[in-house]
């Protein structure tokens, strides 16, 4: 993968990611079905999870170098993250949850609480405006600075973007709290 494509993916460029998805699709899906005798649909599902993990790890700076074949990287993600979970029920999304879990969230009770919190934030985020979703994604998923966010989203200056950040996070937090209280009643 060339540096430019990698940088674009790190900045959240979905078109670049879609290209990577398409380029590696046949070979990786064939490899998964061949290696683990699973159905084509399962293999596609696992391949998509691996692409998501790649996207996450690129955004979080967990991939420091681009001196690798993306195909090799995806094979490694599949091997490490998913193969032992192939047979588990509701495997979908399990890989994502495991990726985000810290050691404090690992016992059964905390695990449930942790998963519920993730689900609540996910639901609350769906209710935000597109502007808030975009800004939150660039700031908190892609870890971009306010100047870059400002350039990408076309705000007047970083201060405007910063004020929007406060507002969006305040709304998100309020929605999560409301949903949490609703569940407790």
């Amino acid at each position: 993968m060339d540096q430019q494509t990698f940088e674009r993916i790190k900045m959240g460029d979905k078109k670049a990611l879609a290209k990577v998805y398409e380029q590696n699709r046949d070979s990786v899906i064939n490899w998964i079905t061949h290696k683990h005798s699973c159905s084509l649909e399962e293999a596609k599902d696992i391949y998509q999870d691996a692409i998501v993990i790649f996207y996450h790890n690129a955004a979080k700076g967990k991939i420091s170098s681009i001196n690798f074949s993306i195909s090799s990287y995806l094979h490694e993600v599949v091997r490490r993250q998913f193969l032992n979970k192939l047979k588990k029920e509701s495997r979908v999304q399990r890989g994502f949850i495991d990726l985000l879990r810290s050691s404090d969230d690992s016992d059964a009770e905390n695990q449930q609480v942790f998963e519920r919190k993730l689900e609540l934030v996910h639901r609350a985020l769906q209710e935000l405006s597109e502007a808030c979703k975009q800004l939150i994604k660039l700031k908190y998923f892609a870890n971009l600075d306010m100047q870059t966010i400002c350039d990408q989203l076309g705000y007047k200056n970083p201060e405007t973007a910063k004020n929007l950040k406060y507002k969006c996070m305040r709304i998100l937090r309020r929605k999560v709290n409301t949903m949490t209280m609703g569940m407790q009643i």
Binding site: K14, Q93, L118, V121, L125, V176
Partner: peptide
């Protein structure tokens, strides 16, 4: 917790987009 939830939500959203993309191939 919010940050992890945001990451989770974006990953779920991307997964759905990839499923749609896959169906176009």
């Amino acid at each position: 917790d919010l940050r992890k939830g945001i990451d989770y939500s974006i990953m779920i959203g991307l997964k759905q987009e990839l499923q749609e993309l896959e169906s176009s191939f």
